[in-house]
Design a protein around this nucleic acid. Sequence first.
DNA 1: GGCTGGTTCAACCATTTGGTTAAACCATAC
DNA 2: GTATGGTTTAACCAAATGGTTGAACCAGCC
Lengths: 216, 216
Amino acid sequence: MHRLMASLSAPSEYSDTERTIFDAALQVFAREGRTGARMQGIADAADINKAMLHYYFRDKRTLYEDVFAYTVRQFMASFDISLTEAPTFAETLRVFIDGYVDFVRTHDAAMRLMVQENLAGGTLLGEHMREATNTDRTPPSILVNTIEDAVEAGEIRPVDPHHTVLTVISTCLYFFVARPTVQILHPPAERDWDAFVEERKDHLFDLIYRGLAPRD
Amino acid sequence: MHRLMASLSAPSEYSDTERTIFDAALQVFAREGRTGARMQGIADAADINKAMLHYYFRDKRTLYEDVFAYTVRQFMASFDISLTEAPTFAETLRVFIDGYVDFVRTHDAAMRLMVQENLAGGTLLGEHMREATNTDRTPPSILVNTIEDAVEAGEIRPVDPHHTVLTVISTCLYFFVARPTVQILHPPAERDWDAFVEERKDHLFDLIYRGLAPRD
DNA sequence: GGCTGGTTCAACCATTTGGTTAAACCATAC
DNA sequence: GTATGGTTTAACCAAATGGTTGAACCAGCC
């Protein structure tokens, strides 16, 4: 179904050393931020000499942009990956929520990078988004289409598909962003985060699907 | 209704100079991040000498913590402020969504600080959250109670109030976090953001209220 | 063996950055 | 007027940080 399971992190055309550096950089950038990250810290995380970073990736900016560009590609692909056409819209939605939540859970560092870049104003986002997007039609739009189709088929009431997609993404994503706050305010999420995530999938599907149901 | 309209930024016990510094620091920290922000940049934004920063706020860490502590207090208070008991749960929800979205819109810098601190691991969050919280019962819990009451009164179906509150917060907040992405992927939001925000209030209320409605 | 090319390393450099200091400024009180 | 105490400034400092360099290392190849 999901092809050969793309690497969780570094692009495949990299050598071992490059891959090690790339993975370390992703983690450090995600944790410390674009400016907070130190080249020495990345070198330590990759267990190599600091000069090696500059040998394989010209400078900090280049390293960051390579990491970020790959992250954007991963994120765009996540929509494709999570969306499987199922017989009913209900099933399609359920599978998407499960898939997308799992994607975010297993790509924590990538998610943090994306959010950070958004908070920073999104200048880099624009460039790399277009690059990762204009090959085929932009990934989120296939989700929009799915909802449009469901509306036309009468499976759900008429709703703005863009807002609906944004709502689904928000609810699947934000609780990972605010995980520390959630865990402070809701002890069960602190005691067993994975169980909380599973609960959340159920809750989200119930709420959103009923919210979209036709009639009233 | 909302008391005397608390200042949008600096605490009231500050002198003019302190207030100027505080406001500048909030903006710069929110834009550049905790580590990305430069003391010189804050001084420039406040149009004062760099040494003044250290005169009024001991060092960068102190300045940041003062700004952040105030931000946490503001955010906790935002729940109280946005929540007005109305005759029906539908009205209460509508008013809360409107109020909370408006709060986030008008407190952009504060929102960014909160999200950044969450992404950074939330160590500081824990301390300041407790401080801003343990005086009276924690603000989000009054929202949880509101939902519990509505369930008991049969106004909405039985749902987990914690997940429901988290869902409301997510949908009201996340589109501000991801604003650059949203604007790239959805041109109308780029052309007229304020109109998009208003649309979103309607969409969110419709979706969530129907999602919570009893029966099926 | 010795040449060649990519790779690895320790030491080094220039700049940036957070933070200090000592003197100057300026209002108010005496 | 001048002494006092908070305020403001320019110059300065030490540490941290991104980035460089020249030599050493180490395959494979003639």
